[in-house]
Amino acid sequence: MQWKRKDLLGLEELTAEEINFILDTAESFKEISLRPIKKVPALRGKTIVNLFFEPSTRTRTSFELAAKRLSADTVSISASTSSVVKGETLKDTARNIEAMKVDIIIMRHSMPGAPHLLAKEVTPSIVNAGDGAHEHPTQGLLDIFTMREKKGKIKGLKVTIVGDIAHSRVARSNIWGLCKLGAQVSVAGPATLIPPEVERMGVKVYHQVEPAIKSADVINVLRIQMERQHRSLFPSIREYSQLFGINRERLKVARPDILIMHPGPINRGVELDPDIADGPYSVILDQVTNGLAIRMAVLYLLAGGKGEAVN
């Protein structure tokens, strides 16, 4: 197939074919990072702007490295240094960046729909690097890529996402992508952190971890935001950890070939015990490695790459 979209805003709007196409493209990019000279000329002459309105180290670094390994020129703008603090609107900021003739804008924002607003306004491709609790498509793709790599296929795979589903863009992108590729997805978390009618997305809902992970092939553990306890969404980090934390004891009911994933950064000892995060089931660092390949593939496809420049 051929990539036709201008932007990557979410996995909701992608077809299974498009998702697989990105995953397959990433496959061929993964090897580049293993070379002694980790650079191909695929995007030479292209300009990519990282526009981050929310602090992020991992995702931004990953995108930046992905762009650099494809030989694109990159600039990073963070909200604290941008004109946002001077009261400029998102639209004006984007228009100004557009006027500098850039090719791709990678955007992270705390509010859902912010990249969609931009995509409507400007001609460069927009990559959503996380918009509030809405979507984080490259995270979803790298999670699915890692599952496919470790388990061979996605169809029929049982994936359980544990934690704060309501406020998680990672959960939403995972659910969309996994369901489109035929996985069986469950979510587990406190009733206050499960969004209404989430079942209609095609997932099963649990409020206890054990039954949710019993027959799972993969557990994707979400980061719990410490500040949520102040909005009476749960009483304390202590109780959250007792009821929903993934630890050795709780994993006794899980399959012996279970995969443990986490989008990071981990609150060690809260949602995930250190010995599990660092243990044999964990593929957390593979996710980070794969993230680079996924982002290279996404940038490459959005910039109009056809596949010949990889070598």
Binding site: G113, G132, H134, H167, P196, E197
Partner: peptide, 13 residues
């Protein structure tokens, strides 16, 4: 409105 649409959009309902 809080419901399926707010769940999909990640907007507070």
């Amino acid at each position: 409105n809080e419901g399926y649409s707010s769940t999909l959009l990640g907007l507070v309902g």
